[in-house]
């Protein structure tokens, strides 16, 4: 019996390790390729480790893409989208969960329906609005589709629903205004949901490719993802440069992930279902 147990444990480890290698390998291959010269990459038979670790592709890709701009644009886009999603969704989530007002059901239905419709259907008019205002190729246009979040509203409403009414009533009777009840008493209680929404918004804004390709076509005003697609179409045969660019583009998020790993996984697990 004991032996059987050890055997199955070994099998589980073996399966997980094989899986983990498959998950990690592309990233290692990215790094190894980026550290080779283009000549070495095209060699037959191929080398696994670089003959000489050569990091000139990293310098070259900095010349080809304005990484400073791309980091800044992506960072600001994520920052503003997270702030807007958290602030506006908290306000609306609180109101939908704890207040009664005329038309509440109608407005909440609006939120639910919007959340179910694929976002691509809105892109053409969203683009035409931004273009009509002459605001393409700005940080505003990057943030624009993420100014409000139906999903965030729905998700934070759940969080406020989970807080007993007595807590809110007690604070209110103790002399807090409605605004204070919300900001000082209830909002802090939704901390873990707010963190989850922030992570969710950041990860998906960072991953989005379609909108920056549509709205911010100027290479200096676009995001890391869209920058990579430009690199991909212009230098499609220089793999060390492409891999160096990809590594640089993924680095900030991976570092954040390694530091806040638990928050990322739990946050995304909490918001799961989108």
């Amino acid at each position: 019996m004991k032996q059987k147990k050890t055997f199955s444990t070994v099998l589980i480890y073996a399966a997980l390790i094989i899986g983990a290698v498959i998950m990690i390998f592309p990233f290692i291959w990215m790094l190894l390729t980026a550290a080779k010269t283009n000549a070495e990459v095209l060699q037959v038979p191929p080398t696994i480790l670089p003959e000489n670790w050569d990091f000139s592709s990293f310098i070259k890709v900095f010349d080809l893409l304005p990484f400073g701009h791309l980091y800044l644009n992506t960072g600001l886009m994520i920052l503003f989208r997270v702030l807007c999603a958290v602030a506006f969704s908290s306000m609306a989530g609180y109101a939908f969960a704890k207040l009664n007002f005329k038309g509440k059901n109608f407005f909440f239905t609006l939120v639910i329906v919007q959340q179910m419709i694929p976002g691509q259907i809105f892109i053409i008019p969203q683009y035409e609005m931004v273009a009509g205002l002459g605001l393409t190729d700005t940080i505003f246009s990057l943030v624009f589709p993420g100014l409000v979040s139906a999903f965030g509203t729905f998700f934070l409403r759940q969080a406020y629903m989970g807080i007993p009414d007595e807590i809110a009533e007690a604070a209110y009777l103790d002399g807090c205004t409605r605004w204070q009840t919300f900001t000082k008493v209830l909002f802090p209680l939704t901390k873990s949901s707010v963190a989850a929404l922030a992570v969710f918004t950041a990860v998906f804004s960072y991953a989005d490719l379609l909108w920056p390709l549509v709205a911010n076509t100027n290479i200096n005003s676009t995001t890391l993802s869209a920058g990579l697609s430009t690199l991909n179409s212009m230098y499609s045969t220089n793999y060390p440069v492409l891999m160096a660019g990809s590594l640089l583009a993924m680095l900030p998020m991976v570092i954040l992930y390694l530091i806040f790993q638990k928050l990322f996984i739990e946050g995304v697990a909490m918001t799961g279902g989108k």
């Binding site: 983990a20 592309p26 990233f27 890391l224 993802s225 990579l228 990809s246 583009a249 993924m250 991976v254």
Partner: peptide
């Protein structure tokens, strides 16, 4: 480790 690709932009994933 299994979750890692989720935080990497699909553009970078596609490239490698």
């Amino acid at each position: 480790i299994f979750f890692l690709p989720m935080v990497v932009a699909p553009a970078a994933v596609a490239m490698v």
